[in-house]
């Protein structure tokens, strides 16, 4: 295995899970999310020489994924799914949330507009800061903060009573 193979192997093992989940929440489809993940890494392999800073790998991969998804949906009309059609297994069994709570959160997240959902995923799932998200989405950090604020506020309004947690903040 040469150096490039080793680097790629490490990237796949470190980030394929995050990339898949990110794709899933944007695509709303398990099979399509897997395809997008595959496509992301195929493109990453071809362009691996352009990744100068290994610390930036996750953001680089996310950017590739976003482009792939945008490309996919630009060719095809977006098909939305009914949250009731999501198999319970897709909700996951980890964590301290009940399946019911997860189903409600799923519905709430999918109900967000893409412009709110995407920065939310990048922050909560990807762990990126507002400045990093701003770079990725090519918008100003202030705009990112506004979108994140509105996304969470919207989620709290929907989820507040259901997830049995007093997370509502009275502003």
């Amino acid at each position: 295995m040469n150096k490039k193979d080793k680097e790629f192997d490490a990237l796949v093992k470190a980030y394929s899970t995050d990339i898949y989940r990110f794709a899933y929440w944007l695509c709303k489809d398990v099979a399509l999310a897997e395809d997008m993940t595959q496509e992301t890494f195929t493109r990453a392999w071809k362009a691996l020489d352009s990744l100068v800073d290994p610390k930036a790998a996750k953001g680089w991969l996310i950017t590739i994924t976003r482009r792939e998804i945008a490309r996919h949906f630009s060719k095809k009309r977006i098909e939305t799914i009914n949250i009731q059609d999501v198999p319970v297994e897709q909700l996951g069994a980890d964590g301290d949330l009940s399946q019911h709570d997860k189903l409600i959160i799923h519905e709430a997240i999918f109900s967000l507009d893409n412009e709110y959902r995407e920065p939310l995923l990048l922050q909560v799932l990807g762990g990126f800061s507002c400045n990093e998200i701003a770079d990725m989405m090519d918008i100003k950090p202030g705009a990112v903060m506004t979108r994140l604020f509105r996304a969470k506020q919207q989620l709290r309004q929907v989820l507040g009573p259901d997830i049995k947690d007093n997370v509502m903040v009275k502003l």
Binding site: R21, G92, D94, L97, D101, I105, I109, L121, L125
Partner: peptide
Amino acid sequence: RLLSALKV
């Protein structure tokens, strides 16, 4: 909790 739900 959000993160837990996002980890499909």
